[in-house]
């Protein structure tokens, strides 16, 4: 449920998200004009039409279901984050008004999720990964794919929080069902973003390489951010709640909590054999970071066909 329909959000959440989105779009409009000048209308018009049209193409993922491209990172990688946010907002506006896909009253929340977070966080992650792995066509594709996955998961988390804050669904099942569902959507988004970007780099490389307003993140800064992330995760280990997590709570509600687990894990309940929760958090961060790194490197070497 990336596009939240009307009826799901409370008045407070609708107003709050509309104000936040409005402020972000105002900044984006100013920055976009500076980046693209008088070329902004035709370029952004073309990208708006493309995103809208491409969202009409559904990709089969099996079991009779299909998904379409969200396009946050793809658009951000081509026209830059500020213009990308405006493009996605224009698409959302047309979808809500003309096709009733996503609510009119919840347009603020949808803009926050699918325009500001999807493009803003997505491009930030994309540039961060590029700074870590270096610039090159295949690395670019890998970084975009990983950023697309993570930004989609972030969007799912934001939708879950908004639904819970509105009192529509309690936070735990919201995170499990909505947030969890976006993990699958994120995988498809990553594959589509990587594949389309790879094709684009082959046929029209100038569109990607001269993305407007691109300011590369320096490698020391990228490594510093990675270090801070690890420290934050370790600190979170100390302040983590001892109450059941979202999956445990949902399992309990569905009557599955009494069933025996399949097997023991080395870091059960986020505890490390030697040093406790902080060590488990550090190991978790390193493993996740390492997996992301491996995916990007494999994509960079062309071993995975996106």
């Amino acid at each position: 449920m990336a596009h939240i329909p009307d009826g799901f959000l409370s008045g407070t959440v609708m107003v709050g998200t509309a104000i936040a989105s409005g402020a972000a779009l105002a900044v984006a409009a100013r920055r976009s004009r500076r980046d693209l000048a008088e070329r902004e209308a035709p370029i952004l018009g073309a990208v708006t039409a493309f995103v809208f049209a491409s969202q009409m193409l559904n990709f089969p993922i099996g079991a009779g279901t299909s998904v379409h491209l969200l396009g946050g990172v793809l658009v951000g990688a081509i026209v830059g984050p500020w213009s990308g946010m405006l493009v996605l907002f224009a698409v959302l506006l047309v979808q809500a008004l003309l096709f009733q896909d996503g609510g009119i009253a919840s347009l603020g929340a949808n803009t926050l999720n699918l325009s500001i977070i999807s493009v803003g966080a997505g491009v930030l992650l994309y540039r961060w990964f590029l700074a870590l792995v270096g610039v090159g066509d295949r690395r670019r594709v890998g970084a975009a794919a990983v950023a697309a996955f993570l930004s989609t998961v972030l969007v799912g988390g934001a939708v879950a929080v908004e639904l819970a804050a509105s009192g529509t669904i309690p936070i735990k099942p919201a995170l499990v069902v909505v947030g969890g569902g976006h993990i699958l959507v994120g995988v498809v988004e990553a594959v589509l973003t990587g594949a389309i970007l790879a094709t684009l780099l082959r046929v029209r490389p100038e569109l990607v390489t001269v993305s407007a307003g691109a300011r590369p993140v320096s490698r020391p800064l990228a490594l510093g951010v990675a270090g801070v992330t690890a420290l934050l995760a370790m600190a979170a280990g100390y302040v983590a709640s001892t109450r059941p997590d979202v999956l445990e709570a949902a399992a309990s509600r569905l009557g599955l909590a009494q069933q025996e687990s399949v097997g023991a894990t080395p870091f059960g309940d986020y505890g490390a054999p030697a040093s406790g929760a902080w060590a488990a958090a550090l190991i978790g961060v390193v493993v996740v970071f390492g997996l992301g790194w491996v995916v990007v490197r494999l994509l960079a070497r062309g071993r995975l066909r996106a």
Partner: peptide
């Protein structure tokens, strides 16, 4: 924002 209405106009 002008850029949104302009790109919507061209995009449409």
């Amino acid at each position: 924002p002008h850029v949104v209405t302009a790109s919507l106009g061209v995009g449409y």
